[in-house]
Each structure stands twice: as C-alpha cells, then as structure tokens.
Amino acid sequence: MNPEELQYAKTHEWVAVAETDGEKIATLGISAFAVEALTDLVYIDLPEVGKQVTAGEPFCEVESVKAVSDIYAPVDGEVVAVNEALPDALETLGSDPYGAGWIAKLKISSEAGLGELMDHAAYEKQCSEEAH
C-alpha cells in the first residue's frame, strides 16, 4: 500500500479502510517511523480472531529486547484476520510496514474513531515534531 494514501493514529498505527460485501474492513499496521523508533522488534503478541476491540484501547503488543509497546485499536470492531506469518518474520515490519507487515484486519462496528485519524501529511508533521 502507498503510505501517502493511508490514515494514521496519533499512536502511530496506520489504517486502510475498504468495503467488501457491504462490510467495512480496516487493515492496520504500524508506521515506518514507529518501527524505527521501537528498534529491533523481537516479538508480537497477535490478538485472537473474534476479539472485540474499542477505539483508543490497546489490543496487541509488540516487544523489543527491553521494551513493550501497545498497539491501539483505531476504531471499534472485531478482529477478523491477523497476519499469521508475522511473528516468524518480524523483519517484514521494517522492510514492508505498509504491505507484508500488516498486523490485523478489523470489521468496523462504529466509525467514530475514524474521524480522529490523520492524513499522511499531518502524520508526517507529528513525526517530525516527535523526532525533536
């Protein structure tokens, strides 16, 4: 996916929303900036398919050697798919964060959270501020 066409949460998750069979599905991952900041990731604790998630609440964790970081749900919904290949190939989070490095797909139950998301330009601005 093209990062410029994605939406971003303040907490560094990217989101792509697509409609299939009348249902809105959000695919999400973490941004290249976040992957870089988290340094060498060693483990991801994927959520279970079927899990209900709430916008703004953590639903998944990634770990580096000496830190644990929460991944927050950008919208309310249900986990309908997770990237099963990811735990054994964490390097894809770095090499292809917006493609093969996707983390989970959520079936959106409320779009309320979507309004809080930023476009690419706004997110870039946030990152450049955080970097200083």
Partner: peptide, 12 residues
C-alpha cells in the same frame, strides 16, 4: 525474554 519481567513490564 526480559519483557515478561517486572523491571520492564512493571505492573503488567
């Protein structure tokens, strides 16, 4: 696997 431990995860 130190992320399990109190010095990193504290209350969790």
């Amino acid at each position: 696997m130190q992320t399990r431990e109190q010095h990193i995860r504290r209350e969790k």
